[in-house]
Design a protein around this nucleic acid. Structure first.
Lengths: 355, 355
DNA sequence: CCCGGAATTTGGATCGGTCTAAATTCAACC
DNA sequence: GGTTGAATTTAGACCGATCCAAATTCCGGG
C-alpha cells in the first residue's frame, strides 16, 4: 500500500540554522514582500546549501488548496488519448500543477477504483474521459460533490459538469457529404457500439447527410462492431451480405476504418478504388496506411490543453484574468463545449467503381 | 500556483457522530484487528453514509510514507513512451500507488523544472526516461539523495541508480545479421545522434555484426540525423553520394526508418525490393507502413510494468515477498537490467537487387 | 531621550491523519 | 467480591507547513 522515506530537511531546520522563526522562513518561501531583504537572502542561501525541498502536501493540508489535477483516461496506448494527456499535462505544468494519472482500460469498475484512489490524493479537479458504460451517479459518488470535473469525449448525462466534446455529428456529416460529392449513393455506417454516445452522434450525422440527399438507408448499411481493428476486419463481409451493397463507408473511427480496409483486401476489393472509406480521429497511422485514410482531425493535444484550462478556471486560476472574472468562472453554469473537426481528404476515398 | 477546496468530512467528524475517539476511527480505517467488530461496523456505516474520503496527504505527513511515484517521460505522443507509461501506471495502480506524470519534451531544462515540481509532491520514487543531454549531477540535485530512481531507456552515467535498458547493441546486431543473411554486403547505419547512448549502442552492435562478417565499413555508410521522420527523409540522399553505395540500412529507430523509406521513394527507389530497411521499437505504424517494416520489438508496456516493480521493490513493496527479501531488495546494489529485443521480419527487408 | 507609525518578526493554533503509552472495560476464575 | 490478563479504547503529541494577532525593532522628529 505504501512506500517509505527518510527524514529530510524541513522549514524548521532552516529556521533554526538561520536563527529566525518558522513563520519568517515560511514568508520567504512564499515570496512575501514583508521580509527584510537581508533576511531573505540569508534564508534562501540556506535553502540552496542544504537542498531544501518544499513539502506541498503539508502546505495544502493547512491551506486547503491543492495543486494537482487528476486525469483519468481509457487507454494511453491509444494515440488519440496519449496526445490528449500530453496536452493536459503541458497546460497543467505551465500553471504549476501536477498531473495525477489514472487509466481505466475502458472498464467502468476499474474507473471507479481509480477515481477513488485518485480522490484520496485530493486533486483540485478531475479531467475524465469516461469508460464505456460509466454512470453519472457512480462517478459522482467517487468524485464527490465539490471537485470540479471536465468530462471529455464521451457524455455523462445530467452530470452538471463541464463537458468537452468533438462535434461528432458534424464530422460524420462532413464525411458523408464528401462521399456523396464523390458520387456515391449507397453509403454504409460501419463500426462502433450504439452504446457509446460518440458512436450514436456520428451515426446521427451520417443519417442526416443521407436524408438531406434524399437517400433511404438500408438496414444492412449499419454494421456494429467493437471499436478495434480486428473486429472491424472480421465484420467487413456483413456489408456485402445482400443486394444493394454499399460502395463506400463512413467508419466510426480510424481503427475501425483501417480494419475495414484490411477486411476488404482480404475479400479481393481494393479500398480507395473499389470502395471508399473514411475514418475519424486522424491518428498518425492514418497518414501512412495503404491507401492513406480520409478522416476527421480534432487536434487532441489542443483539446487536452483546453480541458486543463477549463479545470484551472473552475479552480480560480487563469493567466491574467481579473479576479472578478475568476469568481465568475468558478460559479458559471456547466459549459458544454463542442469543438469543430476538420475533414482531411486522402486517397482512401474515390468515386464509385463503374460496374 | 494552486487551486481551492471546500471543507469536507474528516475522521474527527466521523468520530464525533459515532461517539468514539479519533484514534478508534483511525484503527478502523487501517483495518486493525484491535477494534471490536460492532464498533467497526458502526464506523464503517458512517463512512458510507456521509461519503467520507480518506486524506492520504495528511496520513503520509505523519507516517512519512508516500503512496505515489513520479513518472517523467520525454514525450507521451511517442507511442513507445505512451505504452511504457501505460505499463507503469498499470503496475503502480495494482499496488495502490498513484502516478505523478511529467513530460519534458526532450528538454533537459524542462526536465529539471518538472522533476523539482514533482519532488515537492513527495513521491516514493521516480521513474525517469532522461531527456537528451541530461546530466547525472543535475538530475540528482533535483531528485535528492534519498528517493529511489529507475532510469529507463537512456543511460545516466555513474548515477548509482537502477537502470532499465533495451539490449540496443544486440538488437542492431540481429538486424545487421538478418540483412547479411539476406545477402547484403554493403549495409549502412542510418539516423540518430551519436550524442544519445542508445544510438551509440545500436551503432556498436551493427559494427560488430559487420566486422564479424569480415566487412569493412565505409564512412559514408554512417549517417547521422535527428531522430524524426522528416529529417531522415531529407538525409536519404547522403547514402548514395559516392561509390559503393549501400544496398540496405539498419536504422536507428522506426521513425527514422519510415522517413528513410519515404526519402527512398522520392528518389525512385522501392524500399523492400530495391533497398532493404530495418527499424527499431516496433511502433504500431511499423506493421502497416508500405512496405511493412522489419524491426525490433521491446514490448514497452511490459517494460513499464518492470520499471514500476523495480521502484516498488526499492520502496519495500513486493507481491508476496517475505520481509527479509524486502530488506535485501531495498539495499541491494543498483541493478542494470538489460532486456532482450526480438527481431520481427516484415516486407521491408529483401535480398539485394541484381544490378 | 521619548514617541508614533512603519517595517519585521514571531508564538502558537491549526490542517487531518497516525502513533505510543496508558486507561478502561470485560470475562473468567479463585 | 476481588484479581488478573486479554480485549478495546483513548488522550495527546506529532508530521511540516500556514495564518493570525500580537510583539518587537527601526527610524525620523520633536
Amino acid at each position: 500500500m505504501s512506500g517509505s522515506r527518510r527524514r529530510s530537511v524541513t522549514l524548521s531546520d532552516i529556521a533554526a540554522s538561520c536563527g529566525v522563526s518558522r513563520a519568517t522562513v515560511s514568508l520567504v518561501l512564499r515570496q512575501s514582500p514583508l521580509v527584510n531583504a537581508q533576511t531573505r537572502d540569508r534564508v534562501e542561501a540556506e535553502f540552496k546549501r542544504v537542498g531544501y525541498v518544499y513539502n506541498r502536501a503539508a502546505a495544502s493540508l493547512r491551506t486547503r488548496r491543492s495543486s494537482s489535477v487528476a486525469l483519468v483516461v481509457n487507454d494511453l496506448s491509444n494515440p488519440f488519448f496519449a496526445e490528449f494527456a500530453a496536452g493536459v499535462d503541458e497546460a497543467l505544468a505551465a500553471a504549476g500543477f501536477v498531473t495525477l494519472l489514472g487509466s481505466t482500460g475502458e472498464s467502468a469498475e476499474r474507473q471507479q477504483a481509480v477515481l477513488q484512489s485518485l480522490m484520496e490524493h485530493d486533486p483540485a479537479g478531475v479531467i475524465l474521459s469516461p469508460a464505456e458504460g460509466s454512470e453519472t451517479v457512480r462517478v459522482r459518488q467517487a468524485v464527490g460533490a465539490h471537485a470540479p470535473v471536465v468530462v471529455f469525449n464521451r457524455e455523462l448525462r445530467d452530470s452538471g459538469w463541464d463537458q468537452l466534446s468533438l462535434d461528432n455529428a458534424d464530422g460524420a456529416r462532413q464525411a458523408a457529404q464528401h462521399l456523396l460529392q464523390c458520387g456515391h449513393r449507397r453509403i454504409a455506417f460501419f463500426g462502433g457500439h450504439a452504446g457509446s454516445s460518440s458512436c450514436r452522434q456520428r451515426r446521427e450525422g451520417y443519417m442526416q447527410a443521407l436524408q438531406a440527399a434524399g437517400i433511404e438507408i438500408e438496414p444492412q448499411w449499419l454494421v456494429e462492431t467493437a471499436p478495434t481493428r480486428l473486429e472491424a476486419a472480421a465484420q467487413a463481409g456483413a456489408l456485402f451480405a445482400r443486394e444493394r451493397a454499399p460502395t463506400a463507408a463512413v467508419c466510426y473511427n480510424d481503427a475501425v476504418a483501417l480494419g475495414l480496409m484490411l477486411g476488404l483486401q482480404a475479400r479481393g476489393r481494393v479500398p480507395g478504388s473499389d470502395f471508399a472509406v473514411t475514418g475519424f480521429d486522424d491518428i498518425p497511422e492514418a497518414a501512412v496506411s495503404v491507401p492513406p485514410l480520409t478522416t476527421l482531425a480534432a487536434d487532441p493535444r489542443a483539446r487536452g490543453r483546453q480541458a486543463a484550462q477549463r479545470i484551472l478556471a473552475r479552480v480560480g486560476i487563469r493567466d491574467g484574468a481579473a479576479s472578478e472574472d475568476i469568481a465568475l468562472d468558478r460559479a458559471s453554469p456547466p459549459a458544454h463545449i463542442i469543438v469543430p473537426v476538420r475533414l482531411i481528404v486522402r486517397a482512401s476515398t474515390c468515386a464509385p467503381a463503374r460496374p
